[in-house]
């Protein structure tokens, strides 16, 4: 039986903000099932009581003083924007109706 259904693929695609043609959905469903089947071999291992490794080396939070330092100008920050307005903002579709 397939572990990941077609509708689950569509749900994950929505979470990931991606869309696919019906044919791509078929392909992804098939490929993801094969890949997940392979991943399932991890279930053979008993990991009861094993701490997860989120970082290979011990990581601690790094703090710095809150000091103003030179940073990008508004113009530099906007230079790569696909759409911007003349007042120096990124322009996006309206998100609040009214």
């Amino acid at each position: 039986m397939e572990k990941i259904s077609r509708s689950e693929v569509l749900h994950v695609a929505r979470l990931a903000r991606l869309e696919f043609t019906p044919q791509e959905v078929e392909e992804f469903t098939h490929q993801l099932n094969r890949i997940i089947e392979y991943m399932d071999q991890l279930k053979e291992l008993d990991t009861e009581g094993v701490e997860p490794t989120f970082h290979a080396l011990a990581q601690t939070n790094v703090m710095r003083d809150d000091q103003a330092k030179p940073s990008l100008s508004q113009e530099e920050a906007l230079a790569n924007a696909p759409d911007r307005d003349e007042r120096g903002f990124f322009r996006v579709p309206r998100i609040i109706q009214g």
Binding site: I36, M39, T47, V50, E51, P52, T53
Partner: peptide, 24 residues
């Protein structure tokens, strides 16, 4: 897609967290 699936509700423990334990 694979990463989103591994992190999504209901699969996080079985895949992502499991993998991090095997990483140990």
């Amino acid at each position: 897609m694979l990463g989103t699936y591994a992190l999504s509700a209901g699969y996080y423990d079985a895949y992502y967290l499991k993998a991090q334990r095997v990483r140990t």
